[in-house]
Design a protein around this nucleic acid. Structure first.
Lengths: 151, 151
DNA sequence: CCGTTGTCTTGACCGATTCAAAACAACTAA
DNA sequence: TTAGTTGTTTTGAATCGGTCAAGACAACGG
């Protein structure tokens, strides 16, 4: 039992199980990244590194990138890359939900596309392409940027 | 009249007009970029530079970036950034069409989203965000990658 | 044809991410 | 419980796509 697991309290075991169930070794950095992603969804690599740095001493950005790469490959996290901003990572995988990106500050929110997924996300003419998945990104303003806009 | 305009034949005047109409000065690099984009839609900056290099001697990648930036600002071209690949540029602006990206080779195709734009591209819960535009990206395989897949 | 204004050239620089080798730690099996 | 194997992290450098800045230069209106 290390300081790292202590810092996360009772969740640590559950996090470790999820990592282990994905066929990955349980390490301090991985626990810290998973923990950070739970409290900060849609975080980028640098934000995660900052968070991880608080839990694990002597770690590096490359370690975080490595963790994120293995997590993504294992299906534990999903990577999104909004145009014009560094990659973000989230724990909601499996359900294919979509995202809203704030054009002001770059904040990202989740969007469940409820209505008529079938009709509109089936392209009309794909010009020989076989479309296998669709990804929707909405662009707008987040709550606080809307407030700032009015001022 | 330079070699550049000669190489493009009768189109040169039309291209020059479009650049001029956008409020930009007509230069050799700009003509070459516009010409290259007509024969290679969804081209990236390096592909455009390679094409431009054939028309204009002694030019640079930065010049192409500069042209693309001013073109984008002027509304002459639209910039798209598929996840995991460098930015692409296209001349179809105004109509908000969408794209298919080949997961095999990165090729990009246009897609007109015909059906039910209103219902499905209006998100259900935006969590305080004000969605102003929607962007759809389809992922699949292009014709030649489908063929390669079967082999 | 001249002057102004905007564009291009040249070269350095930056952020985000990846690569590589060696040190190291987690898990497995004895 | 411990040793070995295998996978991870550390450390450091390098790559890729793109931007920034200053001076040289060219387009276009007058």
């Amino acid at each position: 039992m290390t300081d790292t697991t202590d810092a996360m309290g009772a969740d640590a075991a559950a996090l470790a199980d999820r990592i282990h169930a994905a066929g990955l070794k349980v390490t301090a950095v991985r626990l810290a990244v998973l923990h950070a992603l739970e409290s900060a969804p849609h975080a980028g690599a640098d934000a995660l590194f900052t968070a991880v740095r608080g839990d694990v001493t002597g770690t590096s950005v490359q370690a975080v990138y490595g963790v994120l790469t293995s997590f993504t490959a294992a299906g534990l996290v999903r990577r999104i890359e909004p145009a014009g901003s560094p990659a973000r990572y989230e724990l909601r995988t499996g359900d294919n939900h979509h995202h809203v990106v704030c054009t002001g500050c770059g904040a990202v929110g989740d969007v469940d596309c409820v209505v008529g997924e079938a009709p509109c996300l089936t392209p009309s003419n794909t010009g020989g392409f076989s479309a296998q998945s669709a990804e929707v990104t909405f662009w707008g303003l987040c709550a606080s940027c809307q407030r700032a806009e009015r001022a």
